[in-house]
Write a protein that binds this DNA or RNA. Structure first.
Lengths: 218, 218
DNA sequence: CCATTATTCTAATAACTAATAGAATGTTTG
DNA sequence: CAAACATTCTATTAGTTATTAGAATAATGG
């Protein structure tokens, strides 16, 4: 019955691929949009060689695919379920590991100004959008926004925020989102916009989760 | 921004825990029912010491919990979502790794006698049960059956099969199930019962998936 | 409270994985 | 076709993980 063990070992390859913070960072970046090795290496703060090695690892596990485009090699997630897999991983970790809670609160530190307590759920966001009572703000870099975003979202990357205030409504509530539940960009945006008198909260998920849920994207 | 990396590393702990065939075997066994270290070591074909070490690993990742009961320490899955997590892992591996297909066909070899092609889906099974046209056969060991099984299933472990034929109907189709999609017990049962003239197919999932789907168990 | 049984811990070894620097490969552009 | 660029490969090193055997701990039953 070694065939069975071989099978489990092969499944374990996929688990192993998820078993490195650097690889999860790469996957999280790829959940926003496809990207070249160099660009992936930058966001994950790895050397190009090292990033390449990790990407090979992910490729062997069937989580990403690569195609060459000119000088560059473009990596992408093989399918949407990989986002679901990561969400579930996060979910299980959140409920079963006290440490995660501690780390999340360190990530979103201070006394929760614009924080988790007041985050908007997907259902609430959908309701707000339906009745036109909220404006959506995407604070990711232009590149990621262009690769896909929630319908009718305005894109103002965090570092352009203060120069683009005119684009934001003052008569409606703003909901800011970015890469996912642990992305700090939207958090930061909420904090800064509040100080400027805007009514704003953050979405408790991000673009990849929205898309994986089968909701419309542009 | 090291807090973020710490967080990803902690999530990676959970991935790492899934990154070993032996640990997946332990989890698969635990998906049937809680069990002692020795019994787990036996089904996974590990030394007790080694099994214990792997179980510690799973515990640190929050996937299992342990309680002492007399001389024994009983391990169990922390929650049902872990079954879902494993299913998704399998799912992703199946669609993205050609190798898995190769291994599955090696596991269920021969020219598919009573095999995958003819396996019954969950929906079909539910329909058959509703209209009373199928009888359910659980071929797992008594211990696992007693810890939980599909409603109205008859339990005949594989090694008692030939001695218990009277308990099986000849006027209805029999659907055999066991531990999960890669469990060979039901496959073997189908093969043997067919030779004896029974009308029988296998369920393409197992008890843990049924339970995780929120369907009734006894 | 000693013997028995079940599990965990410890130390040692073997096997595997991650990271780095630098060479090699493949693609485009002048 | 040479130069520039992006990526992968190779070899080396350091660090981590798996396994085993055996000692230590914990609970039970005489």
């Amino acid at each position: 019955m070694t065939a069975r063990q071989d099978l489990l070992d092969t499944l374990a390859q996929v688990g192993k691929a998820l078993g490195s913070g650097h690889r999860l960072a790469l996957l999280e970046r790829l959940a926003q949009s496809e990207a070249s090795v160099e660009s992936l290496a930058n966001t994950a703060e790895l050397t190009v060689g090292n990033a390449s090695a990790h990407l090979q690892h992910l490729r062997r596990a069937g989580l990403v695919t690569a195609t060459r485009s000119g000088k560059q090699v473009i990596y992408r997630l093989t399918d949407e379920r990989i986002v679901t897999l990561m969400s579930l991983l996060r979910d299980v970790a959140e409920t079963n590991l006290a440490e995660v809670e501690r780390l999340v609160s360190r990530l979103f530190d201070s006394d929760d100004p614009g924080g988790t307590l007041e985050a908007v759920s997907r259902d609430d966001l959908l309701a707000g959008l339906r009745e036109g009572s909220v404006a959506l703000l995407d604070v990711r870099p232009h590149e990621e926004f262009q690769a896909g975003h929630l319908p009718d979202a305005i894109n103002i990357p965090l570092d352009e925020l203060e120069t683009m205030l005119d684009a934001l409504p003052r008569d409606r509530e703003i909901v800011a989102y970015c890469r996912g539940p642990y992305c700090v960009l939207s958090h930061e945006a909420v904090e800064r916009l509040r100080k400027l008198g805007f009514r704003v909260r953050r979405f408790d998920e991000g673009f990849p989760e929205w898309k994986a849920a089968g909701l419309p994207v542009h």
